[in-house]
């Protein structure tokens, strides 16, 4: 890890022990703080997200997981009275720099939400939406992308005969996979997922988890979940958050078997949360 001890973070060095990816880090969250008006929601968080790996964010609800995740693609920008300090660097470029184009930034990061939110359009229009807003109208490119993305999202076989049907006619699990297909259609580098399975039944959840395992390596995935088994199943690294702070960030195995922090220990063993 590259941080200077003591000066900018209160996080203990030994609480940081992630598994390193082959390609280095993609996102560096550096001493990041966030306030909703006067209320501080994130406190001096510093972690580095490894490229190509799956990183899970766990923690009791209200601890700031979504807030942190939504800071990464600046979805919080719209909230009034919000301000931040510290940096988040994507490929060593601070995303809060004034010359950063938010729209371009968001295009580099796909996002999947807690509740499936397909647009009220056809299945294929949903998937090609990120391309169409880029002004791409070439039917061949669009249909290729639709097929590729749906295949990546393991949805192609189920919908290939009804691409022109309304997306709202799909089941919840299918809708969520459609949203994943949409999120990866524009070929992002990072995939942000905020509790993508919490509104789904166990079968659909399994499918999504399988899908995440398949997408590993192609995208750097950050997934928020309050389901610890899920985190254990899909992620390489896990960050445990509590009251707006990342308490421990490390290899998933280690976090769940022999965590170094007492708070992490209490949480993963179900003593609170």
């Amino acid at each position: 890890m590259t941080e200077q001890p003591g000066t900018r973070t209160s996080m203990d060095r030994k609480m940081v022990h992630p598994q390193h990816g082959a390609e280095g880090t993609i996102l560096d969250i550096d001493n990041f703080c966030l306030w909703y008006g006067l209320k501080q929601a994130l406190f001096n968080n510093t972690i580095s997200v490894e490229k190509g790996l799956v990183t899970a964010l766990i923690g009791p609800s209200g601890c700031g997981k979504s807030t942190l995740l939504r800071s990464l693609n600046r979805m919080n920008d719209l909230i009034e009275g919000l301000h931040t300090s510290g940096e988040i660097r994507l490929d060593n470029q601070n995303i809060f720099d004034s010359h950063v184009d938010v729209i371009a930034l968001r295009k580099r990061m796909g996002m999947v939400f807690q509740k499936p939110n397909p647009f009220p359009m056809t299945i294929s229009d949903n998937v090609s939406y990120p391309l169409k807003i880029d002004g791409i109208r070439d039917r061949r490119i669009l249909s290729e992308t639709v097929e590729k993305s749906l295949q990546s999202a393991a949805l192609w076989d189920e919908v290939k005969d009804r691409l022109k049907d309304n997306a709202l006619g799909l089941s919840g699990g299918q809708q969520q996979r459609l949203c994943i297909a949409r999120a990866i259609a524009a070929d992002p580098e990072v995939l942000l997922m905020d509790e993508p399975c919490s509104a789904l039944d166990p079968m659909a959840t399994t499918k999504i988890e399988d899908l995440i395992n398949e997408l590993r390596g192609r995208y750097s995935i950050i997934i928020v979940t309050h389901n610890m088994q899920q985190a254990a199943r899909v992620s390489d690294n896990t960050a445990f958050m509590y009251l707006g702070k990342i308490i421990e960030y490390g290899k998933t195995d280690t976090i769940f078997t022999k965590p170094r922090s007492q708070q992490t220990q209490d949480y993963v063993t179900g003593r609170f949360g």
Partner: peptide, 11 residues
């Protein structure tokens, strides 16, 4: 959620 979905796509 629909607006967020669209904005997150970079719209």
């Amino acid at each position: 959620s629909l607006r967020e979905g669209s904005l997150a796509c970079g719209a």
